[in-house]
Design a protein around this nucleic acid. Structure first.
Lengths: 236, 236
DNA sequence: ACCTGAACACCGTTCAAGT
DNA sequence: ACCTGAACACCGTTCAAGT
C-alpha cells in the first residue's frame, strides 16, 4: 500500500513539521512575525532546509492556505451532521465558515491575501494548483447540499444558472461579508447589527432570491441559527 | 477661502506627487516593484522625505486605497447618468465596479490586501480613517440608489433589514465575486460563464431576494447590461 | 526648518563548504 | 546525497549632518 521510501516519508514529515510551525507562529504572533528565520528556528533546522520544500515565502503561504481550506472542508462535512431541511443545511455551512474565520482570523487573513495576483504569481504552480483543488473540495461539499436541495424539490435553479454558478455565488457572498466585516465593525456611523446577524439576514435574502424553499418568510431561520450555534459547540 | 499657507500647499502638492508616482509604479510594474526607493527615485526626492508624509509603507497603501475609493465613488456617480428604473441604476453601480476592477487590477489587489489586519494595524490611524470615510462615500452613492428605490415604491425592505445592511450586503456580494473571480477563471473543472455574466446573474438573484421590482423574471436585465456597457464607453 | 542619503536592521534567498 | 549557515541582495526605516 505504502509506495513511498523511508526517505520520502521523512521528507513529507519534515514538511508537515515546517507547516505546523508556520501555522503556530501565525496564530500566536501574527503575520508580522511570520518569517523563515522563525520557522527554521522553531523546528531546529537551517533556513536552507526550508527552501528544500518551498520555492519562496509565498509558496509557504499557499501551502498553509491549502491546509486551511482542507480544514474548512472538514468543518463543512462536520456541519452537515446537523439535522434539518436542505436550506438549513446550507446555513450550517455558512455558520461553519463564520466560525472558522472568527476562530482563526490570521488564517482567514492569509486566505484573503492569497487572492492577490502578487502572491499567486510568486508561488509555485504546484502549490497554487493544490490550493485550488482544496478550494474545490470545500466547494464540493457545498455543491452536494445544493444538489440535494434540487433532488428534494426544495430548489429549482433558473435555466440560466448552473449548479456551479449558484455555488460560486453563495461562496462569494459569504467570503465578501466575512472579508469586509471587520472594517465595518469599527464604523459607528453605520447602523449595522453584528456580523452573525448580517450573515444570516443576507444569506436568507440571497437564498430567497434563488427560490430555495422554505423561504425565509415561511420558516424561522433565526431559530435555526441559534440551534446551529449549539450544535457546533458539541462538535468542536 | 484658502486658509493654507504656501508651505502647507506645497507640502500637500508633494504628497500628491508621491501618491501619483506610487500609483504609476503600481499600474505599470505591479506590487513587486512598489518600493519606497522607486517612489523617491521617480519623484527625485530622498527616501527620508517620503517619510515626512507617510509613517510606513502600509500607510502609503492606505493612502492609495483612499484615492482609489474616491475614484470608485466618482465612477459610481457617473454611472448614475444612466437612465432607467431604480434597479437598473443599481446595476449601473455594479457595472462600474466591475469595470474599475478590470481596468485597474493592481489597484483592486491592494484594495483586497488592505482588508488584512496586518496592513490596518501598521498604517496610521489617520489614513485608515480617511480610507474608511472614502469607502463610506462610495457606499453613500449606493445608499442613495437604494433609498430612491424605496421612495419610488420599487423596493420594500423586510422590517429586519436596515438600508445600511442592504447596502453592505450588496457591496459584499460584489466584492466577493470580483475578489474570487480571477482564481476561478483558471479552473476548467467548473462550468462557469464569464465574470460579467456571473455578476449579472448573481446580482439579479440577490436583488430578487430583496424583492426589488421589476424582478428579473419580469424584466430583461441582460439587455440592460448590454446597454450599460455601451453607456459606460461614452463616459470613459 | 527642512531635506538628504548614508547607515542600520531585518529578512528572503542562495550556494560553497561540510558531513 | 543532504544539510548548513554564512554571505548576499534588497528594502523599509532612522537620524546625524548638511543646507
Amino acid at each position: 500500500m505504502n509506495t513511498l521510501t523511508r526517505r520520502q516519508r521523512e521528507f513529507l514529515q519534515r514538511e508537515q513539521l515546517f507547516l505546523d510551525a508556520a501555522r503556530q507562529i501565525l496564530r500566536s504572533d501574527g503575520v508580522a512575525a511570520f518569517t523563515i528565520d522563525r520557522i527554521a528556528g522553531n523546528t531546529e533546522y537551517a533556513k536552507g532546509t526550508v527552501y528544500k520544500h518551498f520555492t519562496c515565502k509565498e509558496d509557504i503561504l499557499c501551502a498553509l492556505c491549502h491546509e486551511s481550506l482542507v480544514h474548512l472542508g472538514e468543518a463543512f462535512s462536520k456541519a452537515l451532521t446537523f439535522p434539518g431541511n436542505s436550506r438549513e443545511r446550507m446555513m450550517a455551512l455558512g455558520t461553519a465558515y463564520l466560525q472558522f474565520t472568527t476562530r482563526f482570523p490570521e488564517e482567514f487573513d492569509i486566505l484573503i491575501a492569497v487572492r492577490t495576483n502578487n502572491v499567486r504569481q510568486k508561488a509555485s504552480e504546484k502549490r497554487v494548483e493544490a490550493m485550488i483543488a482544496a478550494d474545490q473540495g470545500a466547494h464540493d461539499v457545498m455543491r452536494s447540499v445544493i444538489g440535494a436541495a434540487i433532488a428534494a424539490g426544495d430548489l429549482t435553479l433558473p435555466t440560466t444558472t448552473s449548479l456551479d454558478e449558484a455555488c460560486f455565488g453563495l461562496w462569494a457572498m459569504a467570503f465578501g461579508l466575512l472579508a469586509l466585516a471587520p472594517a465595518n465593525d469599527v464604523i459607528d456611523s453605520l447602523e449595522l447589527p453584528s456580523i452573525p446577524i448580517i450573515m444570516v439576514n443576507q444569506m436568507n435574502l440571497l437564498l430567497d432570491g434563488y427560490g430555495w424553499r422554505p423561504l425565509s418568510t415561511e420558516f424561522d431561520y433565526q431559530q435555526t441559527f441559534a440551534r446551529l450555534l449549539k450544535h457546533m459547540e458539541t462538535l468542536q
